[in-house]
Design a protein around this nucleic acid. Structure first.
Length: 479
RNA sequence: GGCUGGGUAGCAAAGUGGCCAUGCAGAGGACUGCAAAUCCUCGGACGCCGGUUCGAUUCCGGCCCCAGCCUCCA
């Protein structure tokens, strides 16, 4: 039985899909006006891990992740660039897909764009107005009447009165109540607009996700997620809109992914302390980044530092080293103690930190058996690959991974989606040159010219290449 | 001020009322021409103060510190 921590109830609960065997899940995706940073990556990887795991557990998952392609920031950025909004958003959607594919994130089943769901939004606002949850202000904005929705604040644990006390928001005199939020913004001169019964304008942010999720998954679905910072007000408002409109429960389980932090501070656009995915991929293999994200629990804060990524890199190299030269043998489906530990951890609110530690237990045992029980080692190597695959790790040919080769192909056990090569790291020395030097060194070693042999090894080491002399000759890998 | 979540060994990160987390780094040993990798062994933890208990890092109470949300943010 899978247990999931539900933000709505603030406790772990056994997960029971509304329709047995099927899971409908919606995640708030990006506002596309800039490149993805590590915080976005964490959400993408986190929910990708969850989807993969639910599927590995035999559930049929419909995963929807939206794209916000109309918003104040997008309008502003497009104006700054002097480019068309659609050109801007298409460009960053493309960049986002590139980043995701690099990180081993499988495409969601649907990726609705806000601008393509205008009808659903208008319809919902109309229903809310009919029920008196929405009203049109004098400036032609349409607002949601927060105090009318009695359960407002359930998700975030806030009471309407506390909110008012702590409000630092400029009071908008157009609103009946300062807590009310906008459903439809009247267009100002020069802004993109859509026609509506309330006048030309564009949707508020929150209504987008209510409309898109319900268009794609229905009024009531299983899981809704996003970054921790969306809990309030975004998700709170989604609940208010959706449940007021339909009279039904909107979502059963709310999942929120923790922040990425830098120097104990939240990584965010506004603080300017963010690292984009593509920037990081110039220095680290994408799988290292994925491993780094999965090595801690999805709800914990994740502190970014070069040291942490270096540690992730060493750790992942250990796993691939164990897999090196292990043949793909057939292994029966029966669960060993490793699968039991792995699934036990993952069933407990997707405890990837413990699941990953099981991978190391396997690696350790494989290394032990390599010399004494070759087929036993090969069997465990397949188990390691299978479990790694559930986390979206260890797909690659170990030798190619360790040599830092571009990802040309993937050996997949369960994926059905192709992944494109996104190698971005520039190396100091070419493979050809490395091979040449190894040949020279081998000759020197045969002549027992140790000083020359060591000189070449040092030279390679200085260029980030580590040599390993084994029984079958010398092999190399990138540091 | 209100509401969330945290404080675990040099670093990262799980977890548990008593019995090994795990990874990186470090020490000793095996292997190696020397290394690397690997294996064996090892040290070192649970913010502070009380309480419950035969026994608490784990439960309860208080305190201190950190981050986040209450405004756009994944």
């Amino acid at each position: 039985m899978i247990q999931i921590y539900n933000s709505l109830t603030r406790k772990k609960e056994p997960f029971t899909p509304i329709t047995p065997g099927e899971v409908k899940m919606y995640v708030c995706g990006m506002t596309v006006y800039d490149y993805c940073h590590l915080g976005h990556a964490r959400v993408m990887v986190g929910f990708d891990m969850i989807v993969r795991y639910l599927r590995a557990r035999g559930l049929k998952v419909t995963y929807v992740r939206n794209i916000t392609d109309i918003d104040d920031k997008i309008i502003k950025r497009a104006a700054e660039n002097g480019e068309d909004i659609r050109v801007l958003t298409d460009r960053f959607i493309g960049a986002m897909h590139e980043d995701e594919r690099a990180l081993g994130v499988l495409p969601p089943d649907a990726e609705p764009r806000a601008t393509e769901h205008m009808d659903g939004m208008l319809k919902m606002i109309g229903v809310l107005q009919k029920k008196d949850y929405a009203y049109r202000a004098a400036n032609a904005d349409v607002y949601y009447r927060v105090r009318k929705f009695a359960r407002y604040g359930t998700l975030s644990g806030k009471s309407v009165d506390d909110l008012q006390v702590g409000a630092r928001v400029e009071v908008d005199e157009q609103k009946d109540d300062p807590l009310d939020f906008v459903l439809w913004k009247a267009a100002k001169p020069g802004e993109p607009l859509w026609d509506s019964p309330w006048g030309p304008g564009r949707p508020g942010w929150h209504i987008e996700c209510s409309a898109m999720s319900m268009d794609c998954l229905g009024n009531h679905f299983d899981i809704h997620g996003g970054g921790m910072d969306l809990k309030f007000p975004h998700h709170e408002n989604e609940i208010a809109q959706s449940e007021a409109a339909t009279g039904e429960q909107f979502v059963n389980t709310w999942i929120h992914v923790g922040f990425v932090r830098v120097n104990e501070e939240k990584m965010s656009k506004s603080l300017g302390n963010f690292f984009t995915v593509r920037e990081i991929l110039k220095s680290y293999n994408a799988e290292v980044v994925r491993y780094f994200i999965l090595a801690s629990h999805y709800r914990s804060p994740l502190d970014y530092s070069d040291e942490s990524l270096d540690q992730a890199k060493s750790a992942l190299a250990r796993l691939y080293t164990a897999l090196k030269d292990q043949p793909l043998v057939s292994v029966d489906a029966a669960e060993s103690k490793y699968e039991q530990a792995f699934f036990g951890a993952m069933d407990d609110d997707f405890n990837t930190a413990v699941a990953v530690s099981v991978l190391f237990d396997l690696a350790h045992e494989i290394n032990r058996l390599k010399t004494t029980d070759v087929s036993g080692a090969a069997t465990l190597a397949v188990r390691l690959r299978r479990l790694g695959d559930i986390l979206g790790l260890l797909h690659r040919d170990p030798d190619e991974y360790l040599k830092g080769k571009p990802r040309v192909y993937e050996r997949r056990l369960t994926d059905t989606v192709s992944v494109t090569d996104t190698a971005k790291i520039q190396y100091e020395m070419s493979e050809q040159r490395i091979e040449e030097l190894i040949c020279e060194r081998t000759a020197a070693r045969q002549a027992k010219n140790w000083s020359e042999s060591d000189r070449i090894r040092d030279e390679l080491m200085a260029k980030g290449v580590i040599l390993e002399d084994g029984a079958g000759g010398t092999t190399w890998r990138r540091a």
